[in-house]
């Protein structure tokens, strides 16, 4: 059954190194010299980096808040993370076009208040807002798992010694959650590398990401060799990061 997955991957590797069945590195060479690819590559990294960092910043307080609830309340809060998690990314992206568009909710409201309006769609802002929204649950889960695994006596001990909540957080809880944050970062970063619908729906011409470029080469220019080469690069980047994630998980015990 795993063949179902291995075989298609094999095809990608084969295609990326061959043109008309002849071995060549031409695909990779022309990609690396193509301004389009280089631009898309950096755009992808930039969007992924910013979106994952923002998602972590938004997700951390959520995880912290949930971790401090009693078990029953916690499962209620978790539903509020799980619901968006299981909502179709297409629905969420569409929702953002409705909210952020020129005739969208925010701009309509601003217009009604006679305030200046903003372009928030078909640009970087739109992609980042919707991507972050998609990534937050993925940031919450590893951080929450880490926070729940922390020894509650550490906080109590610090409290008895006179430490206030802020000091307990910055000196104990936060440093100890480092591995959870790192795991969350790698996870969200890898997921955003592969974003497809969000940049297509909310981005402008300059916000194309690697998945969209693969689509472009496959459908519009029928350049399967280039498309496969991009897929290999994407796969390789993700795999390296995931191996890193595995290392982080392995060392989690120590923290």
């Amino acid at each position: 059954m795993s063949l179902g997955f291995i075989v298609p991957l094999g095809f990608i590797f084969f295609r990326s190194f061959t043109i008309d069945g002849v071995f060549t590195l031409e695909g990779f060479r022309s990609l690396l010299t193509s301004p389009l690819f280089v631009r898309v590559f950096w755009t992808t990294l930039e969007i992924s980096l910013i979106a994952s960092i923002v998602a972590l910043a938004v997700g951390y307080p959520v995880a912290l808040h949930i971790s401090r609830q009693s078990e029953r309340v916690r499962s209620l809060y978790l539903i509020m993370v799980l619901l968006p998690f299981w909502t179709s990314i297409l629905v969420k992206s569409y929702a953002f076009t409705v909210i952020l568009g020129d005739a969208g909710l925010i701009n309509t409201a601003l217009r009604a208040l006679r305030l200046p309006q903003f372009e928030m769609i078909f640009n970087r802002f739109g992609v980042l807002a919707a991507s972050t929204n998609f990534l937050v649950p993925f940031a919450v889960f590893p951080i929450l798992a880490n926070l729940l695994a922390q020894d509650p006596n550490l906080g109590k001990a610090a409290e008895v010694m006179g430490a206030g909540p802020l000091r307990i957080f910055w000196r104990i809880t936060f440093p100890l959650s480092g591995s959870g944050v790192l795991a969350g970062f790698i996870l969200t970063f890898v997921l955003s590398l592969g974003l497809f619908a969000t940049p297509a729906l909310l981005g402008g011409r300059h916000d194309m990401m690697m998945a969209n470029l693969i689509d472009f080469y496959t459908r519009d220019t029928l350049n399967w060799n280039a498309a496969s080469a991009i897929a290999v690069i994407l796969l390789f980047t993700s795999a390296v990061l995931l191996l890193l994630l595995n290392r982080v998980r392995g060392t989690e015990k120590f923290a």
């Binding site: 298609p8 095809f11 496969s228 796969l235 993700s238």
Partner: peptide, 17 residues
């Protein structure tokens, strides 16, 4: 691994296949 590698990679592979 298909759970984590970008969906577009799987998609392209299946498409070629």
């Amino acid at each position: 691994s298909p759970l984590l590698i970008p969906g577009v990679v799987t998609a392209l592979g299946l498409y070629s296949y």
